[in-house]
Write a protein that binds this DNA or RNA. Structure first.
Lengths: 151, 151
DNA sequence: GATCGACCTTACCCTGAGGTCAAGGTTGTG
DNA sequence: CACAACCTTGACCTCAGGGTAAGGTCGATC
């Protein structure tokens, strides 16, 4: 709890820039994660610099990996909180993964539909302008099949 | 330019709610499009109500269709501006469509990679906890293949 | 003419995950 | 001392609206 100077702790503790570099993140992201409660609040030097431990860096690695899997910060926080409460978060994690896979399948289907629509519109570009349809702005778009995509 | 009352114009002109309903949009979206310059500024009644024409509704339809194709408001505005400048926007539109198709192909590839990663992590959930690897939070995520997705 | 519900107006804050910039303090080195 | 490279907080930006607040207006009914 005692605030220290940077010098006397540099061997064990890391400033935000170093912790960020070690975990492959930006300092801004690291501060954000702390503020959102994914990391415990970092110790500070007398002058206010954050000091991170090797454990913090390990958690940062975990967060980065989880972000790679496209989990949201809130989901990651849930997992971390579970684990800090002494529970095995793995059951939760498999649930998250299943939900994300299902979400990805939905997005893939949406994107494929959107791709078909765009391609149809694109193909129509060649034959447009000859049909007698009067368009307000652009036949290409206006005569495209309307399949709304829920993002 | 002369402001009118609602009553004397109700046959030809529409309030924002009606124009929105006719074009399948929300009033909020219609106001946004006007503010962003996709629609010309609407006439107003003496009391400040917007008055939209049938032409405006046609443009709103066009915008909705273009949004369905996932074009951004800025791209749609470009097309509309081009057309208002007397040009045929179709060349621009085919370019936009091609760019969007290419973007979708990138997203599809990203999502498929992400799906593979998630699935690998999900499968590993069954065999985890038995390997001797020590994990900080969760082996499932930490031993997942790291393939960053650019959204 | 009062009242009511449905409509309209502007303006502000919210989303996700940070990026960017400003203004200023700290550290370590030449 | 000076300087660069770090750190701090804070505010504003993204994108396309959604939600809410506070208040004005419309048409119909009493």
């Amino acid at each position: 709890m005692t605030p220290r100077s940077l010098g006397e702790t540099s061997a064990r503790l890391l400033t935000v820039g170093r912790a960020a570099a070690l975990s492959g993140l930006s300092p801004k992201a690291v501060r954000l994660y702390e503020r959102k409660g994914l990391l415990p609040e970092a110790e500070r030097t007398e002058s206010g610099y954050r000091l991170f431990t090797a454990d913090d860096v390990a958690v940062l690695h975990f967060i980065r990996q989880a972000r790679t899997l496209d989990l949201t910060l809130e989901e990651i926080k849930d997992v971390l909180d579970l684990q800090r409460g002494g529970e095995q978060p793995c059951a939760r994690v498999t649930g998250l993964l299943d939900a994300h896979i299902a979400g990805i399948d939905r997005k893939l289907a949406d994107l494929r539909r959107l791709r078909r629509s765009l391609l149809a519109a694109r193909r129509a570009a060649g034959t447009a302008r000859r049909g007698g349809h009067d368009a307000v702005v652009c036949q290409i778009i206006e005569h495209a099949p309307a399949e709304p995509v829920r993002a």
